[in-house]
Amino acid sequence: MYKLLQIELYKIFRRPRTYISFLAITALVGVIQLGLVKNGDDYVNFVMGNVMQSFSFDGKLLNGYLVCYILLQLLLVHVPLLIALVAADMISGEANMGTLRLMLTKPISRTQFLLAKFTASAIYTFMLLVWIAFLALFVSMFLFGVDDMVIQKTNYLVQLPVGDVFWRYVGAFGFALLSMLSVAALGFFLSNFAENSIGPIVATMSVIIFFTILSTMSIPLFQKIQPFLFTTYMVNWKEFFDPKVNADNAVIIGSLQHPDRIIQSALILIFHIVGFVGATMVLFKKKDILS
């Protein structure tokens, strides 16, 4: 199994396509950071304009923690598309090259074969997120420094003390990993149905875009189906940045306003990952690989 995993990882990282994601992330993060270095204060004044009419802020509002939050808001909607590039190619890519039959002539079970493939795409997803964390969090901390994190929610403004932020990012990235793995699992599942890579990649992207639009639109008809779309739960990493307050309306350090939402969303995403991978295994066992 370990050998199989090594082979799969070798195949993933030998392909130039794999590095498109890393390059795209680097370019995107770099451009946004450059923009914020040059005109960050204008951006903050624009976004906080409503509150700044009544309140004055003393301190470094535009700091590494806030920049990372801005980046994650923008990136985590689009990263699934980059993950689809690899995950949706895992089985269909082999079929396309005609190596699927050859691979399965080896003394390994189809389950082992699939598990190695999915684990490899999970490792790729993990590495992509680590890269995002490095660029968006650590490079931003280096470029912009750190201070309290002040973020705006739809109905209120949150100030998190500087010492109470880092663990929240660890949690948020952990949650983001589950979100991205559910995308990888979907791509992996769709990969089972095609003989070439383009179809499952485009199909995965389409499903993600379609579901994300349905998840984000506040139209009563869509709101009824939103609980059944896994994309609805993918944005709940933001719950890590919503602390609880005490009776005096002061933030309780180290607290979460809705830990139940995080747990529920994480369980739903895990359910989807297991469901997609399980379904892939069931279908792949019956798959005709001789054609």
Partner: peptide, 30 residues
């Protein structure tokens, strides 16, 4: 509509009307 922590502050005053409130580390919202 503001969730803010309790913070340590330093207040400076000098005649006739100089007044400054600074949060000891962190951002002050006033």
């Amino acid at each position: 509509f503001i969730k803010a922590p309790v913070g340590r502050v330093k207040v400076y005053f000098k005649k006739p009307n100089h007044f400054k409130l600074k949060r000891d580390g962190g951002i002050s919202i006033l």
